[in-house]
Design a protein around this nucleic acid. Structure first.
Lengths: 121, 121
DNA sequence: TCACAAATGAAAATGATTTTCATTTCCATA
DNA sequence: TATGGAAATGAAAATCATTTTCATTTGTGA
């Protein structure tokens, strides 16, 4: 097991809190930081395990990593440019609760994402 | 450009209307149908272009193809035993639509899952 | 029958991600 | 300070889905 290299997290932050492993790597290279691609992958995975970042998939299948705020919210993601809007999920919360009750589920969480093309794309 | 090999579509149907290209290929092989992986990919792409099937991504990044018109539904998954209940997402559909409109997003899709512990777990 | 376009598929290429493994860095303790 | 082991690192190889290349086959209209 390995812990996250802090420079990976700070680079992800600098990238707008949203980038693929390859992008983080290229960015660090360009900035002259010496790091291996393997370490970038490991660090990102570790951050995902620790729930510090979320992982999504681009349309082409590439994984993109995103800093996660702590407030519970949902995302509206542009398939074109990757732009993300954090949105409230009032209706979702109620829906999840209702459904869980109906089927007798306890300790319930949920995920919900909306994706489409933003105005510019 | 190539048109879809009809056997690919019928295999996807037989697979429950939901499978990856590799799975469709393996299924056809197992059934003794002679087809190349390339043709499976091409056919599925063509079906996507014609909007006869949807394409989504598994968590591991593999593309999965789904017959359109399959009833759209969501899942209630047990964290303990993995049991899954297919549920309706009426409230979600409306929420997704409203949010997308509010931010000017087009061609919108969404994912939503609820997870918790079922009665037995 | 002929010619040509479309379809096919084997094999190679691509690209992200993971694994392997030898090396280096840390750190606690003798 | 020296030392031993655990954790971190990264280059290179392996993996795996997907795409591209290209030669061959098939189908079709003249």
């Amino acid at each position: 097991m390995s812990r996250s290299n802090p420079k990976v997290l700070s680079t992800l932050e600098r990238a707008g809190g949203f980038a693929s492993a390859q992008e983080v790597y290229r960015l660090m290279q360009r900035e002259g930081q010496s790091i291996g691609l393997t370490t970038v992958y490991r660090s990102l995975q570790s951050l995902v395990n620790d729930k510090i970042v979320d992982v999504l998939r681009r349309d082409d299948g590439e994984a993109i990593y995103r800093l996660c705020g702590d407030a519970h919210h949902h995302h509206l993601v542009c398939k074109g440019c990757g732009d993300t809007v954090e949105i409230e999920g009032g209706a979702i919360e109620k829906w999840a609760k209702t459904m869980a009750e109906e089927f007798g589920f306890r300790e319930v969480g949920h995920t919900a994402e909306i994706f489409g093309l933003c105005q510019r794309c």
